[in-house]
Amino acid sequence: MAFEEKQAWALAVIAVVGYAVYLLIVLNGADGRPLTEAPYVGAMLWTIGGGIVAGIVAGIWFGIAARNDGLQSDERDREISRFGDHVGQSFVVIGGVSAMVLAMVEAPYFWIANVLYLSFVLSAVLGSLTRIAAYRRGLQ
């Protein structure tokens, strides 16, 4: 498996696990109250920060594991990475537009923050899955 493909798997797993942890913390924190009253800022910041750190650690780990493999990325990896970013970016746009609409209707901050967070997660997951599919099935 290519170094960059391992990275794509790691990012997809980190994004899903991080969001699952966030949801568990927020849902437990609601404790019967409406979701908008649940404390979410700390959990969101910690899971986003944790995800970034985990991504960096995974990159270092795979880099060390593949240190004797010679070249670790080339033109195909760069093309696949761009393709994945292009696909994943659509969710960032959808999230931005959704957040804008929520702000216009004066929705609670909770929903604005959460729709943005969800769009980042979906962007990371979809982008990573696209990269994995390109590695597995080919990129023309």
Partner: peptide
């Protein structure tokens, strides 16, 4: 494959993908 990949400056995985027709190189 590893030797050819090294000679042309791509990863072994990319050379395998080219050989299998899964990737059209530059």
């Amino acid at each position: 494959q590893a030797d050819l990949a090294k000679a042309v400056g791509v990863t072994r995985q990319t050379l395998i993908a080219i050989e299998q027709g899964k990737y059209s190189p530059s």
